[in-house]
Simulated assay, not measured.
Amino acid sequence: MSSDITTVVKQYLETWNTLVAEERRALVDKIFTEDVEYVDPNVAVQGRAALDSYIEQTQKQFPGFVFSLAGDISAHHDVARFTWHVGPPGAAPVAVGYDFAAVRDGQVRQLYGFFS
């Protein structure tokens, strides 16, 4: 598996845990292509600004929750699959999901999320 994809996936989860708007937006600009497509059961958005807004809304909806990687990252051909948990730090997760990310030139171009 490409260590670049591992880094990108870890940085992706970091964006969900970054509460300072300017810092989060800097991460979004670094990690995602300008034309990123993000789809999960709650939303389908395109572009960095729309994704950043969705992350901020989610953080407000679940204050204090932390996203974390839940297992290994499986990757091939610039595509990654991984599972994540979200919940209060040190507590059992309140939600589990798995995502598929397509990476282009070291940035996420498409991300499709599913909730378990």
Score class of each variant (00 low, 15 high):
13 L>S: 10
44 A>F: 05
41 P>K: 01
32 F>A: 03
19 L>P: 01
63 P>D: 04
19 L>K: 12
32 F>V: 02
37 E>H: 08
33 T>F: 01
89 P>F: 04
79 V>G: 04
44 A>K: 13
12 Y>C: 02
30 K>R: 14
81 R>P: 00
45 V>F: 00
89 P>C: 02
83 T>V: 15
88 P>F: 05
57 Q>S: 14
34 E>F: 06
60 K>P: 03
82 F>A: 12
51 L>W: 03
89 P>N: 04
62 F>W: 12
62 F>A: 10
85 H>C: 08
72 D>H: 07
45 V>D: 00
83 T>S: 09
40 D>T: 03
71 G>E: 03
81 R>M: 13
41 P>C: 01
77 H>I: 02
75 A>F: 05
87 G>P: 03
29 D>A: 14
23 E>D: 15
54 Y>Q: 07
32 F>Y: 14
80 A>M: 12
52 D>N: 15
66 V>F: 08
76 H>W: 11
80 A>E: 09
24 R>K: 09
26 A>I: 05
31 I>G: 05
70 A>R: 12
35 D>R: 05
80 A>H: 13
52 D>R: 08
74 S>E: 13
55 I>Q: 06
28 V>S: 02
50 A>Q: 06
51 L>N: 01
42 N>I: 02
55 I>W: 05
22 E>T: 11
48 R>T: 11
82 F>Y: 15
12 Y>D: 09
55 I>H: 06
79 V>S: 05
17 N>F: 05
68 S>M: 09
76 H>K: 14
79 V>I: 15
33 T>E: 07
16 W>L: 14
16 W>G: 06
13 L>Y: 10
65 F>E: 15
53 S>G: 15
62 F>L: 11
42 N>V: 01
38 Y>A: 10
35 D>V: 04
90 G>H: 01
63 P>A: 07
27 L>M: 06
62 F>H: 07
54 Y>C: 03
67 F>N: 10
85 H>Q: 15
52 D>T: 08
19 L>A: 14
36 V>F: 00
35 D>F: 00
83 T>P: 00
56 E>Y: 13
61 Q>T: 14
